[in-house]
Design a protein around this nucleic acid. Structure first.
Lengths: 153, 153
DNA sequence: AAAAATATGTTGCATTTACAACAATATTAT
DNA sequence: ATAATATTGTTGTAAATGCAACATATTTTT
C-alpha cells in the first residue's frame, strides 16, 4: 500500500487545501480591513485594469467563473462606480466591454497597499525562487488540465 | 507596474485555478464513470481507510470541511454501507468514530482502478520530480497558512 | 433564402457550502 | 457546588455557485 496513492498524500490534496486556506485567509483579511469590495470583485477589478476593453466572456475565461457569476460581479463593480461597461463589437458581435474608472483605480491602489504586506506574510520561509518554480510548474499543470476539461464558459 | 503584482500573474491565481480545474475534471470523470459516490465522498472514504477509528471532527480537520458538511458526507457513506460509525470516547468525551467496511474497501479499490489512469494523465509532461517538489513546497505553504487562519472547525 | 448552429449575456432554479444556533456532556474557574 | 467555558455533533438558514434555459444577434449550412 504505497503512501502516494492516498488522497491526503496526493498533490491534489495539497492543491485543494492550500487554495482553500488561501481563500479563507483572504476573506478574513478583507473582512478585517472593512473593505467595501469582495475578494472576487477585487480580482476582477485588477484583471480588468490590465485588460482594458475586455468583454465579459473573455474575463470569465480568465477568472474561470461562469458567465452568470462574472456578470453579477461586474454588475456590482459597476454599481460601485469602479468600472464602466459599454456595448461594443467583437468579431461583428455585440459584446459588453468594460474599463476601470478613476475611482476604481484609486480603490485598487488603496487595497493593494493595505493587502500587500499581509499577502507577503503568507509565504513564510518559502524563498522567492521556490515560489517562482512552483508557479511555473502549476502553470504547465493548469494548461494541461485546460485541454482535458470541458469548461463550457 | 511590475507584472507579479497582478492577480492573474500571482501564485494564488495558479493555485486557485489549478485546484478548480482539477475539481471540475474529477467531477466530470466521476460522472462519466457513473460511480455511485461523489468525489468528496471518495476522498473521505479513502481518508477513513487510512485513519481507522478517527472521529468526525478530526476527519473534518483533515478534509478542511466544516463539521456540518463532514457529518453529511459520512451520513451518506454510512447509508451506502461503506463505513460504520460507532460511539466511543476521546479524552473522556463522547465522539462518533468510524471505520471502513468490507463493502467500502471494495468500492474504494474499484474506484482506484477506474480512476488512477485518468489521474495520471493530468500530469502531462511534468516530471515526477517536479510534482514532488511542488508538493513539498505547497505543504510548507499550507502549514504556514494554517497558522495564520482561524479555521473554526 | 431559410434553417441550423454559434456567440454573448441574463434570469431562474437547484445544489453546495458556510455559518450560526442548539443540544449534550465534560472540564475549568470562581 | 455552581457557573462559565470547551468539545463534539446536528439542524436550520442564508449565501455562493453552477447549470440549464432563454433572448438576441450573427454566422454557417443546406
Amino acid at each position: 500500500m504505497k503512501k502516494e496513492l492516498h488522497y491526503t498524500d496526493s498533490i491534489y490534496y495539497e492543491l485543494e487545501q492550500t487554495a482553500r486556506l488561501m481563500k479563507i485567509l483572504t476573506l478574513q483579511l478583507f473582512d478585517k480591513l472593512k473593505l467595501n469590495i469582495t475578494p472576487d470583485e477585487y480580482f476582477a477589478l485588477d484583471t480588468v485594469s490590465v485588460n482594458a476593453g475586455i468583454c465579459q466572456r473573455d474575463l470569465a475565461k480568465l477568472l474561470l467563473k461562469d458567465r452568470a457569476n462574472t456578470g453579477r460581479i461586474l454588475e456590482s463593480l459597476e454599481q460601485k462606480g469602479f468600472i464602466t461597461r459599454f456595448i461594443d463589437t467583437k468579431n461583428n458581435r455585440l459584446v459588453k466591454k468594460m474599463g476601470i474608472t478613476e475611482k476604481g483605480y484609486n480603490e485598487l491602489e488603496l487595497i493593494n497597499t493595505k493587502v500587500r504586506s499581509h499577502i507577503e506574510n503568507t509565504r513564510g520561509k518559502i524563498t522567492a525562487k521556490e515560489v517562482q518554480k512552483v508557479q511555473e510548474v502549476l502553470k504547465k499543470f493548469r494548461k494541461n488540465l485546460e485541454q482535458m476539461v470541458e469548461t463550457n464558459i
